[in-house]
């Protein structure tokens, strides 16, 4: 490295670094600062309240409710898109031209915005003529038909299902790429040794998909923590906060009730949860890497 090269490096990095720090890193860290205040969003003056916002969380039932729902969403994110994506990838991998056309149909939700997806699924759950209730009535299960999004026990699950519709497609894409990377001889060898299809999947294919699985699950969990659009369009966290996740709860506290100090404290909690997820992700991918080297 000569001095001129250093100078070029500094010149090239100046702008990206400045923009990234000013609009991502600094605001992210500033949330810690605001979490110690009682700022209301527009007043110039505000007070330092120490850890009062964090103490408030322990007695706030809406907060523990949002944490619980975020946890439910995370667990669903690990199971539904991963299982569905794997199944679809196995079914569609190397099945010829027909399957390739079908693949594109499965890709489609990835290109759609979650705001659009929320809009579409509102009509699937619509009480009177929605797709689910219409189907239930047609097959004689009329008494099961109900206002899905108006029921506290169903609203969250209904939104998670809509979200999973897209996330499953994303998982499938990653699993398909993972399948392409598996040497065909290994699967054929198992076949010749007499392993049936399900044995091949369980003993050969799934273990070899471990690197892809780690990415699929990490992506699903991180996306579940970010999820806001689909919730905003479908329920806004309702009815009675039954579908609030942390992101929605934070939005309501900050931009509906103007408790920006408390909202920042919720953001800090979200930050810490993300940090824990990242730590687990890097540990898992390091383990997988060691296994495959």
């Amino acid at each position: 490295m000569t001095r001129t090269t250093y100078r070029w490096a500094a010149l090239f990095l100046a702008l990206p670094l400045a923009v990234y720090i000013a609009f991502v890193v600094f605001p992210l860290l500033s949330s810690f600062y605001y979490s110690l205040t009682d700022w209301n969003g527009f007043d110039v003056n505000y007070n330092f309240v120490g850890l009062a916002n964090f103490e408030k969380m322990f007695s706030d039932r809406l907060f523990s409710n949002a944490i619980g729902n975020t946890l439910i969403w995370t667990v669903a994110a690990i199971i539904v898109p991963t299982g569905g994506g794997l199944a679809l990838a196995l079914v569609l991998h190397e099945r010829g031209i027909f399957a390739n056309i079908y693949k594109s149909m499965f890709y489609l939700p990835i290109a759609l915005a979650l705001a659009v997806i929320g809009q579409i699924w509102l009509w699937i759950y619509q009480p009177n003529w929605g797709l689910i209730n219409a189907t239930l009535r047609n097959i004689g299960l009329e008494n099961l038909a109900q206002a899905w999004l108006a029921k506290p026990q169903f609203a969250l699950l209904a939104v998670i299902l809509a979200w999973s519709w897209q996330q499953t497609a994303l998982s499938m894409v990653i699993f398909l790429a993972g399948l392409t990377a598996i040497p065909q001889e290994l699967i054929e060898a198992a076949h010749i040794d007499g392993a049936n299809y399900f044995q091949r999947v369980r003993r050969v294919i799934v273990p070899l998909l471990a690197p892809a699985s780690v990415v699929v699950i990490a992506l699903a969990v991180i996306n579940s923590l970010k999820s806001f659009d689909v919730l905003y369009v479908m329920t806004r966290g309702g009815p009675f906060h039954s579908s609030d996740n942390l992101a929605m709860f934070m939005y309501n506290e900050s931009f509906q009730k103007y408790n920006m100090g408390y909202g920042s404290a919720i953001a800090v909690v979200l930050f810490l949860i993300t940090l824990a997820v990242i730590a687990v992700y890097f540990r898992q991918s390091a383990q997988v890497e060691r296994l495959y080297d």
């Binding site: 500033s30 920042s264 953001a267």
Partner: peptide, 28 residues
């Protein structure tokens, strides 16, 4: 144009991928 600390800087850049944007919402 690698220099001492360039790998750390790379991780610093990429770390932004993982965090929900909600965390920076109020300051922004």
């Amino acid at each position: 144009l690698k220099f001492r600390g360039s790998n750390a800087l790379f991780i610093f850049f990429v770390a932004g991928l993982f965090f929900p944007p909600q965390i920076a919402l109020i300051p922004l």
